[in-house]
Simulated assay, not measured.
Amino acid sequence: MKDGSTNENIWGYDIEDFKMPLDTLSHVKPQDITKGEVILNMKLRAKIEHWNTFNDPFVELAYNVMIKGVGEKTYHFGFHIDKHIGNTNTKEPHPIYHLQYNFNPTKSNNPNLGDLFYIDTPRIMHKPVDFILGIGFLTSNFYPIAFESLKDEREFVKLQQSYQTAIWKPYFHTLANNWKPFTEGDIVWNPINDICPIFI
């Protein structure tokens, strides 16, 4: 928990500076960038009793990714997927789980933003991820060839399916419940992988 206390009903973990070399540098700008790195930091806390149920399991989720590009100098870009906790009485929409870009992931006091205009919105609604699903997310986006190979690995597929069931199933069922009654026979928007390519 944030205050350092322990709670036998909560499980979780922290990941610090998990690094992967960036293989895909297509459409990169500035064009002097020759290599890159994906750096993941995350914190997750979940209620044990809500795992594998239709409840939201997460008490806290902060999935922070920094992309570092190296050329004539070092460039940074970032985004996070997190759970908004606290007051949502603001002018901007605050989806409880959202993706948000971060153009100053190093927290520099004077970042070189060039012609970039930075603003704190939008917060784009996004499904929650843990480390397992997050690795699938990063791999599919930044290492697509490796991701296709991983989909042939039985253990990877079983792990992804297990966590998709535990985390995404309650999330999507809750969204679908807005249009109840939910009738399985009404589903005609297929294949599901066109909507979410990292479903396995």
Score class of each variant (00 low, 15 high):
121 T>I: 12
190 N>G: 06
99 L>E: 08
152 D>F: 09
59 V>L: 14
52 N>V: 07
13 Y>E: 14
171 Y>N: 00
90 T>Y: 11
186 D>F: 12
106 T>R: 05
121 T>N: 15
194 D>I: 03
58 F>C: 03
199 F>E: 08
195 I>M: 14
108 S>P: 01
8 E>I: 07
187 I>R: 15
53 T>I: 06
5 S>T: 13
9 N>R: 13
48 I>C: 05
95 P>G: 03
7 N>T: 01
44 L>I: 13
158 K>M: 12
182 F>E: 15
62 A>V: 09
101 Y>F: 14
68 K>H: 02
64 N>H: 11
4 G>R: 01
154 R>K: 14
147 F>S: 01
37 E>N: 08
151 K>P: 00
43 K>S: 11
38 V>E: 10
43 K>F: 03
139 T>P: 04
20 M>P: 04
64 N>T: 05
158 K>L: 15
146 A>D: 12
162 S>Q: 12
95 P>D: 12
38 V>F: 09
181 P>N: 12
16 E>Q: 08
193 N>P: 01
45 R>V: 09
87 N>P: 10
153 E>D: 14
86 G>M: 09
182 F>G: 07
111 P>Q: 08
86 G>H: 08
26 S>K: 13
71 G>Y: 03
83 K>N: 06
74 T>S: 11
90 T>N: 10
5 S>V: 03
75 Y>M: 06
69 G>A: 02
116 L>G: 05
77 F>K: 08
37 E>M: 00
187 I>F: 14
180 K>G: 09
35 K>F: 13
20 M>Q: 10
2 K>C: 03
3 D>L: 06
71 G>R: 00
35 K>W: 10
125 M>N: 12
95 P>N: 07
148 E>D: 15
94 H>N: 10
185 G>A: 12
163 Y>G: 04
18 F>I: 07
41 N>M: 05
11 W>I: 11
112 N>D: 15
36 G>A: 02
155 E>M: 09
190 N>L: 11
101 Y>G: 08
135 I>P: 02
35 K>R: 15
6 T>E: 15
41 N>T: 04
124 I>D: 07
179 W>S: 13
65 V>L: 06
94 H>I: 03
194 D>K: 10
32 D>Q: 11
11 W>T: 09
161 Q>K: 15
85 I>C: 09
29 K>G: 08
146 A>P: 04
47 K>G: 05
122 P>K: 06
163 Y>V: 06
